Simulated scan of single mutants.
Amino acid sequence: MGFAHEFWQLTVDGATIGSLYAVIALGYTLVYGVLTLINFAHSEVFMLGAFGGLFAARALVSGGPTPSGPASVALVAVGLGVGAASGGLAAFALERGAYRPLRRRGAPRLAYLISAIGASLFAYNLAGKEFGRQSVPVPDLFTNGTVIGVLGAEISTQALVIFGVAAVMLVLVDRVVTVTRLGQAIRAVAQDADTASLMGVDVERVIVATFVIGGLLAGAGGFLYAMTFNASYTMGFVPGIKAFTAAVLGGIGNVRGAVVGGLLLGLVESYGGYVFQASYKDVIAFLVLVGVLLVRPSGLMGVRQLRAA
């Protein structure tokens, strides 16, 4: 079977994982748009959200038969909610502990970078100590099987859940940034924080809200990711780097650019993994990052200020 025969299946697989990259990439884009800083601890927010959702799911599933129907929907919703809440709480603590003290002292940008890396290492090692060094599977929340076939591609229940939930979250964030008062405040601070402050915008509140929104997305995305790849204290690093690649690919600071970048990266990985070998998927992601930085550092959308389009 050649590439053409597997094209649509590879497209479905790539779009599914790419939607998760896009969800995580939005956290990088939002923080960068407001503070022009890369939050290198975002990958650990993703990991902590995954464990939060995992523990909630394990508490509700007693080891009996796999749930079905409304029970499955409720369990997935609870896992997503707790995962998102865990990620949002972790992001809030990160902003308060690693960023706000430096911002109040007018610290140089290098200090933010070092602080974020330190916070990332702290969360990484704490999770390894508290949650164990082995991967922990998320219990079965629904019966996974082929739901529909499109152009020869089989779409499983799990792929449908991941892509559907991710798509809903991406649309909601786009709407929040585009049409709400909070979104207007975020865009105002991203454009000119001093002028926004003079116009009555609470800049500190906007910064906290930006971190929390990114954390909510990362936490929910972490739970979705763990449903397929299990939860581990090391799980944040590679998806975090790939999400950063997606943000750069689409144009970091551009909400829709992060979505486009995530989907494109997922598709490139899927196609490349088939043409070459699956073990080259991570290499392909990093080659994409280097290539984009060399050819078009501003990304495909070419916008660096935070905006919806």
Rank of each mutant, 00 (worst) to 15 (best):
L121H: 08
L121Q: 13
F122Q: 02
F122T: 14
A123W: 05
A123Q: 01
Y124L: 14
N125G: 00
L126Q: 06
L126I: 15
A127H: 00
G128Y: 08
E130K: 04
F131E: 10
R133S: 12
Q134S: 13
S135Y: 12
P137I: 10
D140A: 15
L141A: 08
T143P: 04
N144G: 05
N144A: 13
N144R: 06
G145K: 14
I148R: 11
I148N: 02
V150G: 07
I155K: 01
S156Q: 03
T157G: 15
Q158I: 07
L160A: 15
L160I: 05
I162W: 01
F163A: 15
G164D: 09
V165D: 07
A167E: 08
L170W: 13
L170C: 12
L170Y: 13
V171E: 06
L172E: 07
L172C: 12
V173S: 04
V173A: 09
V173H: 04
V173I: 14
D174M: 13
R175S: 06
R175P: 00
V177D: 04
T178I: 00
T180H: 10
L182W: 14
L182T: 14
G183P: 04
G183Y: 04
Q184P: 00
A185Q: 09
I186A: 12
A188P: 06
A188M: 06
V189A: 06
Q191W: 07
Q191N: 13
Q191D: 15
D192F: 09
D192I: 09
A193H: 11
T195I: 15
T195D: 03
T195V: 15
S197T: 11
L198P: 07
L198R: 14
M199Y: 11
M199R: 12
V201I: 12
R205F: 10
V206A: 02
I207Q: 06
V208P: 00
V208A: 14
V208Y: 01
V212Y: 05
I213T: 06
G215M: 10
L216I: 09
L216V: 13
L216K: 02
L217F: 14
G219I: 05
G219F: 05
A220I: 10
F223I: 08
L224S: 08
Y225C: 01
M227T: 08
M227Y: 00
F229V: 07
F229T: 08
A231P: 02
S232R: 04
T234A: 12
M235N: 05
M235L: 13
G236R: 02
G236Y: 06
V238M: 13
V238S: 07
G240V: 10
G240I: 06
K242F: 09
A243H: 03
F244L: 15
T245P: 07
T245I: 09
T245V: 10
V248E: 03
G250H: 01
G250L: 01
G250Y: 01
G251T: 06
G253E: 03
V255E: 02
V255I: 15
G257D: 06
G257I: 03
V259P: 02
V259D: 03
L264C: 10
L264Y: 10
L264H: 07
L265I: 05
G266E: 00
L267C: 05
